[in-house]
Design a protein around this nucleic acid. Structure first.
Length: 594
RNA sequence: GCCCCGAUAGCUCAGAUGGAUAGAGCGCACCCCUCCUAAGGGUGAGGCCACAGGUUCGAAUCCUGUUCGGGGCACCA
């Protein structure tokens, strides 16, 4: 509908331009928006206000010319000039009735468009290090990223969903060593656990399984393991340092010791076991959450293929790499970054940043027209340097969009819920999902603008009342299903054609409001997709559900009058369809009974 | 210190590209509810859009400064 009106305006402008009534005025797109007040019609354009100056005419006068040049349309009842020069469009009832037919005809496809023209976009999200289970912070990135991907797909992009697995590097070695130490504990060895090791319970569980399968095949005495290591930093239960030491140096020494004592083959095996166990867990977790990836991209594979070295060479050839204090630096400051960044450390190891440049370069080389990264807001300082690197290599950094997601804070009984347990483990995504359910979790996570802190009310998410937006929306869907059931129980049948032919009977204000809400859906999807703002869809669905519930409370659908009943049924079914489609994009189920 | 994000009703938050009288939910106040199509329905009070300047026909929205929050400023990942 919106594009239809825009076309009308465009034609009018062409007409005026031919007549020389526009001067030099030029516009890239036709401004048109929904009115907030019904008295202003359905759509309004401020185009006359914008063009007035360039055209050298008074706004209202210009608006009047545009109006008279507008071609006639079945959907437009009248056009008003109002205020300083707004052009207000009033739609005919048939314009609204047409949407009911369109919804019922296109069903699951209603709201989808071809705006993206099949352009390839990659959405990379979550990408948490496989060193432990996902926590509630990752959950927001998962829900947000998945929904953004769904939205882009809905408006016609070819979307590739990807998880970047940081399975190389120091943290993974620390994980492998930690797993080994837990395993040794199962063998009966006793020793203080390194303060910088991974201490989570999940690792003990993996170690227990490993012990059950391999017995003592990886056993080395604690005495041998910890002989002549540097001093660890030791804290008491209150967190005060009891014995000062260098925990980083210490844990690196423990890793090195594990490598030496286990030998390359056994060490690699243990490493794989730990990595796979955790990655499987993450994959299952996300899968249950309705978050499915097209690809899990391994940093290790990237590195082993030589992509990192190749990238560093390209940077060097471009003249942006120099040596200082034994390390290799990338001159990112030449591209607006605050300072230069190390890409290869003094000890010869490339940094995480280096592989990240290689990874992003690889994304571009894989032919994506557009690359989207979803990161935690705490990584925002990282954006300029990645873009700088891409630019240095000769890629267009504007093809990369980094979306930042703020933290979620859990609330229980009106108070901030602790995000980690006494043992220092975070509340996991799985625990959250088990507590509030997948649907509520998916919805609540995207209910707020992503750059906004999210207060996650656990009690509200669990409640079965209209206060809970998820419940309220799903209930609207179930209610229509219930009406159909009632229809059958009454021995009545439905005639869609008859309903369609009598949509003119829908004259109640509630019905008009509902019709208007339905026509908005494709615009909401488009806007939410292009601006990466799933919350717009979430808000819209709540409004739509509200429009339906108030209508439903006020009027009966199953009236004796066949024509009116069928018309109302069509309207109800169209509403159900749109709710179903919208919830599907959010990854939320649309139950038929509740 | 520098950088990023935020500040809108008592609370939690919407207000795309500057537009017409700034919205929703909760809470609060009042009213209705043995009709049913379920765990209620309705009404409306509540605002210096953090503050001060600026840009223009017009600013919650753009610019500058200030205040208060959150985050970031590694040869960590």
């Amino acid at each position: 509908m919106k594009t239809h009106l825009q076309q009308l305006i465009t034609q009018a402008l062409q007409q005026l331009r031919q007549d020389g009534a526009l001067g030099a005025a030029e516009l890239s797109s036709i401004p048109l928006e929904r009115t907030r007040d019904r008295a202003h019609g359905d759509y309004a354009s401020n185009i006359a206000l914008i063009l007035a100056k360039a055209a050298g005419r008074k706004p209202r006068e210009l608006a009047e010319s545009i109006r008279s040049a507008l071609p006639a349309s079945d959907h437009v009842a009248k056009v008003d000039i109002a205020g300083p020069g707004f052009i207000n469009f009033f739609l005919t009832p048939t314009a609204y009735h047409a949407v009911v037919d369109e919804i019922l005809r296109r069903s699951d496809a209603f709201g989808r468009s071809t705006l993206g023209h099949g352009r390839r976009v990659q959405v990379e999200f979550v990408s948490a290090n496989p060193t432990g289970p996902l926590h509630v912070g990752h959950g927001r990135g998962a829900a947000f990223g998945a929904t953004v991907a769904n939205l882009l797909e809905a408006v016609g992009y070819q979307v590739h969903r990807e998880y970047y697995v940081n399975d190389a590097g120091r943290q993974m070695n620390i994980l492998a060593a930690s797993l080994w130490l837990r395993y040794l504990e199962h063998c009966g060895e006793q020793f203080p656990f390194p303060s910088n090791g991974y201490r989570g319970q999940y690792l003990c569980n993996i170690a227990a399984r490993f012990y059950a399968e391999h017995g003592g095949a990886y056993l080395v005495s604690a005495q041998q393991v910890f002989r002549d290591l540097p001093q660890d930093e030791i804290r008491n239960a209150a967190g005060d340092i009891v014995t000062p030491g260098d925990k980083e140096l210490y844990i690196d020494a423990v890793v090195e010791r594990a490598r030496v004592l286990l030998g390359d083959h056994r060490y690699r095996f243990l490493f794989e076991v730990g990595l796979n166990a955790i990655l499987d867990d993450i994959r299952d977790d996300l899968g249950e959450f309705g978050v499915i990836y097209d690809e899990w991209y391994s940093e290790r594979v990237l590195t082993e293929r030589g992509a990192v070295n190749k990238t560093l060479h390209r940077l060097r050839d471009a003249g942006y790499v120099y040596e200082r204090e034994g390390a290799l630096w990338f001159r990112s400051s030449a591209f607006g970054d605050e300072k230069d960044r190390v890409v290869e450390r003094e000890n010869g190891q490339t940094t995480y940043f280096a592989s990240d440049i290689a990874y992003h370069l690889e994304k571009f080389e894989r032919g994506f027209d557009w690359v989207i990264d979803v990161w935690g807001a705490d990584h925002h300082g990282y954006v300029p340097r990645v873009k700088a690197a891409l630019q240095a290599i000769g890629e267009n950094p504007d093809r990369l969009d980094v979306l930042l997601v703020q933290f979620a804070i859990l609330y229980r009984n009106g108070e901030r819920a602790p995000m980690s347990t006494r043992s220092g483990e975070f509340v996991t995504l799985r625990e959250l999902r088990q507590e509030v359910g997948n649907d509520a979790a998916r919805f609540f996570y995207v209910m707020r603008k992503s750059e906004q802190h999210l207060d996650f009310d656990l009690d509200l998410a669990k409640s079965q009342s209209r206060d809970n937006p998820v419940y309220y929306i799903q209930y609207a869907h179930a209610r229509v299903c219930s009406v159909l059931k009632q229809l059958r129980e009454k021995g009545l049948s439905r005639d869609e054609q008859r309903g369609q032919a009598h949509l003119t009977r829908l004259t109640e204000p509630h019905e008009e409001g509902l019709l208007i809400a339905l026509t908005r859906y494709p615009e909401v999807v488009e806007m939410a997709a292009l601006n990466h703002e799933p919350h717009q869809l979430a808000h819209y669905l709540r409004e739509l559900a509200n429009a339906f519930h108030t209508y439903y409370n006020e009027h009966r659908v199953l009236v004796d009058d066949d024509a009116l009943r069928d018309a109302r049924l069509n309207l109800s079914l169209a509403t159900r369809q749109v709710i179903k489609n919208g919830l599907a994009l959010l990854g939320v189920s649309a139950p038929e009974v509740m």
